[in-house]
Write a protein that binds this DNA or RNA. Structure first.
Lengths: 194, 194
DNA sequence: GTCTATAATTCGATAGAC
DNA sequence: GTCTATCGAATTATAGAC
């Protein structure tokens, strides 16, 4: 693997572990086994390297979700499968994590790939929900975009709970609760209250 | 207000805005209008001051939720009211934000107040859900702890979506979606599928 | 492309005067 | 309690040899 590639992958890892503020050029160089001059030859500065790393992570994460969304089963099953996908609860989300960095939020170059990934995931989940509504798996009154945002939020927030407790348990509880709520939403008319 | 107090409040703000790694002693001193010697007189080091600030934030946030949970209306209404409470979507959660800092997760002193706050919120929400189940607002099959975790996760994750888009909109969508899912959960027997 | 040298600045803290 | 001076290390580069 060439140096440029190793630098990007090291930056991806460090952004995941320590965020933009906590990632020093020195640490990137050490992890990539690259010298200082080498890093500044391939990238203009820390922000440029971070940008390349963020674009890469956002693409990888979206691609893996896209595959999950395209499986040959019911829309509800695909959503449940997305929620159940093996995730390293304590490490958190490589991309969601970046939203906590003020430098990333303030710099449109750095924020844009993050925004784009979440927008595309929302869009993908909303389409699945519409599909599920047509199949009678979800109530037609359900707002697809709202529900898609809720699903994404549960996953992102579940990471927060897991790290707070230093345990994967609250992550899995939050996911289980969300699946249970979604499964209760079939389009069949409910008996009237009282 | 005395210096010690100003130091704690400044640290609370900086932890919210920039996290532990991004908060320098110098920045705390400047914001508190305190000298260097002053800060190191009141607190042994950066971690000790951060600890005091985190304990304070966790207490404040829990206290405000506790009041919300004790209002004189139905359990469902109190949960909805908690979800709808005015939040500064783009600033994120003062306490949840800290879970992204590896230094905070690694140091039990710093992580404990965060863990405790989320544990107590989960407990409080789970109790509300049990109360709602007794009142017929929620299905008895619903797992109170799972659902409580889901509710907390939606809020924490909604902040992530908002910051990613640099807009409060996805925050409110995620909350609206969650409320819609919860309101569909009355204990009334649903008509059988088909 | 990669290396070493250098530099200005900041970080997190200590020392000691007042 | 607060202040200034100082410290060694790290940060984020730039310069220029190879």
């Amino acid at each position: 693997m060439d140096t440029r590639e190793r630098l990007i992958e090291s930056a991806q890892e460090l952004l995941w572990e320590r965020g933009y503020v906590g990632m020093s050029p020195k640490a990137i160089q050490d992890r990539a086994s690259a010298g200082q001059g080498s890093m500044y030859h391939h990238f203009e500065n820390k922000a440029a390297l971070a940008s390349a790393a963020i674009v890469r992570s956002a693409e990888q994460l979206y691609e893996s979700a896209r595959q999950e969304f395209a499986q040959p089963c019911s829309a509800l099953d695909r959503i449940v499968s997305y929620l159940h996908r093996e995730r390293d609860a304590l490490r958190g989300c490589r991309v969601g994590r970046l939203t906590q960095d003020p430098e990333i939020i303030a710099d449109p170059q750095l924020r844009q790939p993050v925004q784009e990934m979440f927008a595309k995931l929302t869009q993908g989940l909303a389409s699945l929900i519409v599909e599920g509504q047509r199949a009678g798996e979800f109530r037609s009154e359900m707002n697809p975009e709202d529900t898609a945002s809720t699903i994404l939020a549960v996953v992102q927030g579940a990471y927060v709970l897991a790290r707070a407790e230093n345990s994967a348990e609250p992550f899995h509880r939050a996911i289980a609760g969300a699946i249970s709520l979604l499964k209760q939403q079939s389009g069949v008319k409910r008996a009237p209250r009282k």
